[in-house]
């Protein structure tokens, strides 16, 4: 089981962490809300929880709690630009249906 990032995503995460001045890495996960059931979580991490799994990619740590991992295993995190807007996108092979905007999903 694993999750990963594109180079574009890794570069941004590295720069945001540096700018923030602290943090162990990036938490990637899901929570159970939203119009299609599940929603992604993307947060800085200051402390690890007992059930966290850590995936290292180069010098960066991706942190996923055990329960989330089931739903996002194999996900690749990307950073994309759409016009003036830019941000992270989840390419999750487990997804069966998304809400119109892709912010929440079902598996």
């Amino acid at each position: 089981m694993a999750i990963s990032m594109t180079t574009a995503a890794a570069d941004r995460v590295r720069s945001f962490l540096q700018n923030r001045g602290k943090g162990l890495g990036l938490r990637v996960g899901i929570k159970t809300t939203g119009c299609s059931g599940l929603a992604y979580v993307l947060e800085f991490v200051d402390t690890l929880n007992d059930d966290d799994e850590v995936f290292e990619q180069d010098d960066l740590k991706l942190i996923v709690d055990g329960k989330s991992l089931v739903y996002i295993d194999g996900t690749q995190l990307d950073f994309v630009k759409e016009g003036l807007n830019e941000g992270f996108q989840f390419n999750n092979p487990n997804v069966n249906g998304e809400c119109g905007c892709g912010e929440s999903f079902t598996v």
Binding site: K31, V80, F88, Q89
Partner: peptide, 16 residues
Amino acid sequence: MLLQIAEPGQSAAPHQ
């Protein structure tokens, strides 16, 4: 929808 990184515990609910 493109996502941004939130502070620990501050992830917003979808569409919020």
